[in-house]
Amino acid sequence: MGSEKEFYKRLKEELNNTTTWPSSYLYKFIVPTDTDKISQIEDIFDNRGAVISSKKSSNGKYTSISVQLIMQSADDVIEKYREVGKVEGVISL
């Protein structure tokens, strides 16, 4: 498995090859259903004009969170992934 640094390098190249900035970007995360963790993710995108939606899994153990917003560059996209990655138990899709 590659390192986190390599993953973000590939993601940046892919985003820059397929996207004209600024552009709308859709983040998707899976998080254990915990109001504190969900609030932490929402706070990361607060005051950015994000449209945030969430849906609990059928058993209620996990919550999927989608965040759509205008991002200025691939670096901005990656920075948000890194911030969300600090929230324990989050899976970025």
Rank of each mutant, 00 (worst) to 15 (best):
K61L: 02
N17V: 09
N17A: 15
E14P: 05
V51T: 15
S39N: 11
D46C: 00
S3F: 04
S66H: 12
G49Y: 02
V67Q: 01
T20S: 13
R48G: 00
T19E: 02
L15I: 14
T19R: 09
K28E: 14
G49E: 01
T63Q: 03
D34V: 00
D46I: 00
I52Q: 03
S58F: 04
R48E: 13
S23C: 10
N17I: 09
Y27G: 07
D34K: 04
T35C: 07
P22M: 04
W21R: 00
D34Q: 06
N47A: 02
G49W: 01
S57W: 02
L11C: 10
N17Q: 13
P22W: 05
L11G: 01
T33Q: 04
N16I: 09
G2C: 06
E6F: 06
T18I: 06
R10N: 15
V31W: 02
S23F: 08
I65W: 09
K56N: 10
D43T: 07
K55P: 12
S24W: 06
E6W: 04
G60P: 02
K12A: 08
D46R: 03
K5Y: 03
I38T: 15
T19H: 09
D34T: 09
S58R: 05
K9Q: 11
V67I: 15
A50V: 01
L26D: 14
K12I: 04
L26Y: 11
N16L: 10
D36E: 15
T63L: 02
L11Q: 12
S53E: 12
S58C: 07
N16D: 14
F45R: 02
L26A: 14
T18V: 08
S23N: 13
S54K: 12
P32I: 00
K61W: 04
T63E: 08
Q68K: 14
S66M: 13
G60H: 03
I65T: 06
I44Q: 01
S39D: 12
Y8R: 05
S53M: 07
Y27C: 03
K55Y: 09
L15N: 09
K5V: 07
E13M: 08
P32A: 02
Q40H: 08
S24L: 04
Y8K: 06
Y62L: 11
I30T: 13
N47G: 01
K9F: 07
Y27F: 15
I52P: 13
